[in-house]
C-alpha cells in the first residue's frame, strides 16, 4: 500500500497546498496504518484483551507511545498477586481496575464478562465466577470464557469452590463445598465438559463446622503431590480445623491447624491496601466501601493462597451516616495464558 503511487501523489498535493486546506486536514488523512489517528487507535486498543494490547504496543512507535488505560501494565511486578476491582458500576459495570502491590497507578480494562458476576476462586490467572444460574471460568488477560455446569441450587450462603489446574488443562477438576448445617456438608466434584456434579452428602460431621473460611486442594499443601491425590481430595478450613474429604474412600477427616503458621502474611495485604485504598474509594465514588476479596491459590510470601475475606474502608471524615457500597475484588496470579 505504501507503494501505491496514486495515494502518494494525493498526499503530496495536500502537503504542497497548505493554504487551501486547514492545517488539521493534512494530518487527519492517514497515509499508513502506523499513523492511525488518535481516535481509532484509542478505540481499538480499549477493545483489546490485555495480552493482545501487549502485542499491539510492540507494533510500531506511534502505537507504543499512544496513551491507554493499560499503559502501565508492563511496569507491574509479576512476583506478587495483582488485584482486580470489578463490577464497580462504572460504564454499566464493564470497567475494571487492575492493581499491583507496588505500582501507584492502576490499569483500566473493559471486562463485560464480569458485569454482575462474583468471583469465587482465583488460580493461575484464571477466575472461577458465578452469575445468576451460570458458573464459568474467566481469564481476564485473554477474556476467554469456559463454561461449567451449574451447581444445583443449595439454600446456603456458606459455599466455597476451588480448582486444581487451569481449565484449559485436561486435568482440571473443580471442587465445591456447601455447608448445609453445623454437622451437614456437601462436597461436589466436576470437570469441564461434565453434564453434572458428582456430589456426596456428609452428615453428622464432628467436630461441627461453624463457618467455611477457606478451601484448598491437596496439590498445594503437599509438596510431593501426585495427580491422583490432587484430583481426588479437597481440604477446607473452619476456624482452627482443617477438614479433608477424599473421593476415593468418601471419608471426611480433620486435623487441628497451627494458627500461627497458616494465617496469611499480613504485610502483603497491608502494603496493598495502604497504597490503593484511596483509589478504590475514588473509583467507587463513595466515602465508605466494603470490599469482598475472593480467594486465591498462589504462593505469596511462603504462604499458600489467601482465603476470601471482606473489609471495610472509609475516607477521612466519614461519618456513620454515610452509606456503604459493596465492591468486589479478585486476586489474580500474574500469569498470562500462552498463545495458541
Amino acid at each position: 500500500m505504501a507503494t501505491n503511487s496514486d495515494d502518494a501523489a494525493a498526499v503530496e498535493d495536500e502537503e504542497e497546498a497548505p493554504r487551501a486546506v486547514p492545517p488539521s486536514t493534512t494530518k487527519s488523512r492517514a497515509t499508513s496504518w502506523s499513523d492511525l489517528l488518535d481516535g481509532p487507535l484509542g478505540k481499538i486498543s480499549a477493545r483489546l484483551p490485555l495480552i493482545d494490547y501487549l502485542s499491539f504496543r510492540g507494533v510500531c512507535k506511534n502505537w507504543r507511545l499512544f496513551p491507554s488505560g493499560c499503559s502501565h501494565i508492563a511496569e507491574f511486578s509479576k512476583k506478587h498477586p495483582w488485584m482486580l476491582l470489578y463490577d464497580v458500576g462504572v460504564d454499566g459495570g464493564n470497567t475494571c481496575y487492575l492493581y499491583d502491590r507496588l505500582h501507584p497507578k492502576c490499569c483500566e480494562m473493559s471486562l463485560p464478562h464480569l458485569r454482575g458476576a462474583t468471583c469465587m476462586e482465583s488460580k493461575a490467572g484464571w477466575l472461577l465466577a458465578t452469575r445468576e444460574r451460570e458458573l464459568f471460568f474467566f481469564n481476564p488477560f485473554s477474556t476467554q470464557v469456559i463454561d461449567l455446569v451449574m451447581y444445583p441450587d443449595r439454600k446456603s450462603s456458606h459455599q466455597l469452590f476451588t480448582f486444581t489446574s487451569p481449565p484449559t488443562s485436561p486435568d482440571c477438576v473443580v471442587f465445591g463445598v456447601h455447608r448445609l448445617g453445623a454437622s451437614v456438608v456437601e462436597i461436589g466434584r466436576c470437570s469441564v465438559g461434565d453434564d453434572e456434579w458428582e456430589r456426596v452428602l456428609v452428615e453428622d460431621v464432628r467436630p461441627p463446622i461453624e463457618t467455611l473460611d477457606g478451601i484448598d486442594h491437596r496439590g498445594q499443601s503437599i509438596a510431593s503431590s501426585n495427580r491422583r491425590e490432587i484430583n481426588h481430595s479437597v481440604d477446607f478450613v473452619s476456624s482452627d480445623l482443617a477438614y479433608s474429604f477424599s473421593f476415593e474412600d468418601y471419608l471426611l477427616r480433620h486435623r487441628h491447624l497451627n494458627p500461627a503458621r497458616e494465617r496469611p502474611e499480613p504485610t502483603f495485604l497491608d502494603k496493598f491496601v495502604n497504597l490503593h485504598r484511596e483509589d478504590w474509594l475514588r473509583r467507587s465514588g463513595q466515602k465508605r466501601i466494603s470490599v469482598s476479596f475472593c480467594s486465591l491459590q498462589m504462593m505469596v510470601d511462603d504462604v499458600v493462597g489467601l482465603f476470601p475475606f471482606v473489609r471495610e474502608y472509609a475516607a477521612d471524615g466519614t461519618t456513620t451516616t454515610d452509606a456503604t457500597k459493596s465492591v468486589k475484588a479478585a486476586w489474580l496470579e500474574p500469569r498470562f495464558p500462552s498463545r495458541s
Binding site: M1, A2, W33, I44, S55, F56, V59, C60, S340
Partner: peptide, 16 residues
C-alpha cells in the same frame, strides 16, 4: 487483531 502476534499485525497492516 485478537490473537495476532506483533509480526502478524505488522504484516497484515503493512507497517514497518
Amino acid at each position: 487483531f485478537k490473537g495476532m502476534s506483533v509480526e502478524e499485525v505488522r504484516e497484515f497492516l503493512n507497517i514497518e
